[in-house]
């Protein structure tokens, strides 16, 4: 078992060398995912659309959160959340599902969770583009906001990878965790201001809510889509720090458990 900065750097180098293979795996899974279904790639829109409909009804109408243009507000939080949560859940199954592959070709195991993030990322970018068209048409987006969007997406990719890599290794080695993960992700969904604004959190608890880096991530998207501004400098700082820290810790955890995970396959 290796540990320390050296292991994280080796991990980064190995991953960069194998990015073309990750690309191939992403293509494979995107091409294969909806093969044989009538709706085809259209399915990538159906899940977000249905969730949007039900959350919109419950939190936009039943419990009125008092947010103007709640639809735009909800979607700009829900879409990034779906990329994050579906990537983490799929990644935690990815090593076991591809165990046959990993024990038969010399493929670094992190390529599989990363390919999951990429495949989910394709759906995310597609849905986000549609949201962007709607927001631009409504006149809610500024040039600065538009320009900051790719950077936000890239920073989110880092955060998602930093969470999905350890989730993949941990759930493979300690199977019990896989049972817990789905519930934990759902809890995080309700604890992060996604369907409600931060202002609805009581003052006494608000500091706690702002300690959640995902709040800042969602906040960055909201700046672009609902305020029509680039994220504030403080938001950028939190996002960069979160991405770097989670990637570093995630890579270390992954490397520490990697060989154990391989032996479980």
């Amino acid at each position: 078992m290796r540990f320390g900065p050296g292991a994280a750097l080796d991990h980064a180098r190995e991953t960069l060398r194998h990015l073309p293979v990750v690309g191939v795996l992403v293509r494979r899974s995107v091409r294969a995912r909806y093969q044989g279904t009538i709706l085809g790639f259209g399915w990538t829109l159906v899940t977000p659309a249905l969730l949007f409909a039900v959350y919109g009804l419950v939190f936009g109408v039943f419990f009125d959160t008092g947010v103007e243009r709640y639809g735009l507000f909800l979607l700009s939080g829900l879409l990034p959340w779906l990329w994050l949560s579906q990537s983490i859940e799929d990644a935690s199954d990815s090593l076991r599902e591809s165990g046959r592959l990993l024990t038969r070709v010399a493929l670094p195991p992190q390529t599989l969770p990363l390919a999951v993030i990429g495949a989910q990322g394709v759906s995310f970018v597609l849905t986000l583009s549609l949201l962007l068209i709607v927001a631009v048409a409504g006149g809610h987006v500024s040039w600065l906001g538009l320009l900051s969007l790719p950077a936000i997406v890239i920073l989110q990719a880092g955060i998602v990878a930093g969470l999905a890599l350890p989730a993949a290794a941990l759930c493979t080695v300690f199977r019990d965790l896989r049972q817990l993960l789905g519930t934990a992700v759902r809890m995080l969904f309700f604890l992060t201001p996604i369907v409600y604004p931060l202002e609805r959190v009581p003052e006494s608890l608000r500091l706690g809510a702002t300690l959640n880096p995902l709040h800042w991530l969602i906040d960055a998207y909201r700046s672009v889509f609902t305020l029509g501004e680039a994220p504030a400098p403080a938001t950028w700082c939190v996002l960069v720090a979160s991405a770097v820290a989670s990637l570093a810790v995630g890579a270390l955890v992954f490397e520490a458990l990697r060989e154990r995970a391989m032996e479980e396959l």
Partner: peptide
């Protein structure tokens, strides 16, 4: 290794070769 039933023969060759270490 890594063959997928729904992909074409050609696509599978490309995926398989990449997995076995050939540059795309």
């Amino acid at each position: 290794t890594g063959f997928h039933d729904e992909l074409t023969a050609r696509e599978n060759v490309l995926v398989n070769a990449a997995l076995l270490g050939l540059a795309p």
